[in-house]
Amino acid sequence: MTKPRNKLRLATLVALSLLSGLAQADRLDDIKKNGVLRVAAFDSNPPFGFIDPQTKQISGLDVDYAKELAARLGVKLELVPTNPANRIPLLTANKVDIVLANFTITEERAKQVNFSIPYFASGQQFIARKGTLSSPDQLGKLRIGVDKGTTNEIVLREKYPSATLVAYDDTPFAFTALRNGNVQAITQDGPKLIGLLANVPDKDKYEIPPFSISNDLIGAGLPKGETRLTEFVNTSLRELEASGKAQTIYDAWFGPDTKTPLTRIFRIGDK
C-alpha cells in the first residue's frame, strides 16, 4: 500500500505547487517569459472582431489594439475566439491574458475581473424591421433577441421587465432570428449593430431606431488582481491616443470611407 500513497503525495505536491505558482506569478512576467500574449476577441462581430474571408484570421478594431499591445511587449499574439458569454470564464479560468471583445465596464463585472481605462464608448440600441419600433415605450410589448452573457440582457430585463427576452450565443444568431421573424427586435451596442447591418444584403428592410437605453464604456478585461498588466494596458492605451494611433485604428473601421462611418465621440482618457 505504500506505492499508491506515495503517488497521492506526489499528486498533492504537484497540485500545491501549481496553485502557489498561480498565486505568486505576475502575469506580465509570464507573458514576457512565454513570449505569447493570449487575447480573447470576437469572431463574429464586425468591425470589432470577425474572420477576414481573405486571410481567414480574426481581425477588427479590437484585434488592432491587441496587435499594438503584443508589439509593445515584443511577444507573439495568440487570438482566442470568444462569444459574449465565454468572456469572463475565459479570464477566471486563466485561458487568456486579456479580453478585447467590446467588453462593457460594469461594477458587477469589476468584482470578477480588472478593467483597463475605456477605449471605446457606445450605447445600447436596437435593430428592428422598418416601422416596428420608434420609441423605448414599445419595448415592453416586444419579443427581443439578446446575446447570452451581455450587459444588454441584464439592462433590458431590469428596465423593461415585461419584454420577452430570447438569448442567443451571438449577435448574428439573434439577427437571423429577427430576419426569420422569431423576435421583433434585437439589442446590442450601437456600433456593433451598425457593423452588423452594414454586412446584411437586404439592409434597407431594417433600421436602428435613434434612441439608446444606456451609455456604455468599453474596456479591456484582465485577470483580477493583475495590477502590473492592467497598468501596462492603461499606459499603452494613453500612448496610442497621444501618438494618433488610436485615431488611425478607429478610422480604419469607423472612418468616413468605411462601410460603417461613425463620428468619434470618445477619446481614450476622456473618462
Binding site: 458569454a85 470564464p89 433577441g145 447570452k148 441584464i154 430570447v166 438569448a167 442567443y168 444568431f173 422569431n182
Partner: peptide, 16 residues
C-alpha cells in the same frame, strides 16, 4: 444553442 430557455440555458444565464 437556439435560444430555448431550458436547464443549461438557465445555468449560463445565472452564471452571467
Amino acid at each position: 444553442a437556439i435560444g430555448l430557455a431550458e436547464l443549461s440555458y438557465a445555468s449560463r444565464q445565472v452564471e452571467t
